[in-house]
Design a protein around this nucleic acid. Structure first.
Ligand SMILES: [Mn+2]
Ligand SMILES: [Mn+2]
Ligand SMILES: [Zn+2]
Ligand SMILES: [Zn+2]
Lengths: 138, 138
DNA sequence: CATTATCTAACAATCATTATTATTTAAATT
DNA sequence: AATTTAAATAATAATGATTGTTAGATAATG
């Protein structure tokens, strides 16, 4: 995700409005490495704007995803998680508490779609999900 | 997944019953490489047992998952998919039609959790999801 | 064949997410 | 600064996948 400042311009360039709710969501996401779910974002926004609607969170996350500003992570079977870091990177998730940490290693030299499948799929990228148990859950 | 024959014994060893509905689900899954969703399994069972309940499909898939006989794939944001192949392998999914194909390459020599994270997570494995567009969807 | 624990099917409930819409508001225009 | 208007918000309902409940059916055992 861009800085909140640049993101503001990006939205305006797309004819979108900057609202206090959106600004709060941007600030929560900026440099956020916790991979929050929509609900976790909602709870934090609610502390400042108690009347905020869940719909606003979902719509804003959808907007950011469509702009390519956040990545939607499909890794927790129960809910989607959002990642403002859109650089190629990977994750490790705890099967118990679903805590997600970043894995910043470049596997691109070794992880490639086999040639036999290249004729069937035009691949845009890949994601690696490590599964395990975090130290808090033992 | 084991053969239907062996699986039958496994279930009996666990005090579980072999019903016609379950046998049909087992047969549908045996050697199935299409990564069906619960609904796709349901539709196929329904052709033979028109009165089968969706609950039976879900319960049976849950049972097979808990026995370690099928893998639940979290890769399509809309629904879970089921894979009778429980050997470590990976997948490529079409972002458009959600068709999933197997990727049988052993990346385990190169894909490892970085040492810096080893103290935080006890990893049981990893999954690679290649994303792209299949040839049918261009 | 009788017993019994498990399974099925019908149904309801849950929960994350999406759709709808009246009201509000950002921000461009006068 | 007031007016205008397209877009966003919030409230609410709807959706759809999945899970929970339970009474009746059935597989398995002796
Ligand atoms: Mn990340
Ligand atoms: Mn597979
Ligand atoms: Zn944990
Ligand atoms: Zn496709």
């Amino acid at each position: 995700m861009e800085t909140v400042e640049k993101l503001t311009k990006t939205l305006r360039n797309h004819g979108m409005k900057i609202t206090p709710q959106r600004l709060m969501i941007f600030k929560i996401l900026e440099n956020n490495t916790s991979h929050p779910s929509a609900e976790q974002v909602f709870k934090r926004v609610k502390k400042i704007y108690p009347t905020v609607s869940f719909t606003t969170i979902y719509k804003t996350l959808e907007t950011l995803r469509d702009l390519g500003e956040v990545q939607e992570l499909i890794i927790d079977e129960d809910r989607k998680h959002y990642d403002p870091n859109t650089d190629t990177h990977h994750h490790v998730i705890c099967s118990n508490c679903k805590k997600i940490l970043d894995v910043f290693e470049d596997f691109s030299q070794h992880v490639k779609l086999p040639d036999t499948l290249k004729k069937d799929y035009t691949v845009s990228g890949f994601q690696i999900s490590f599964h395990g148990i975090c130290k808090d859950c033992n």
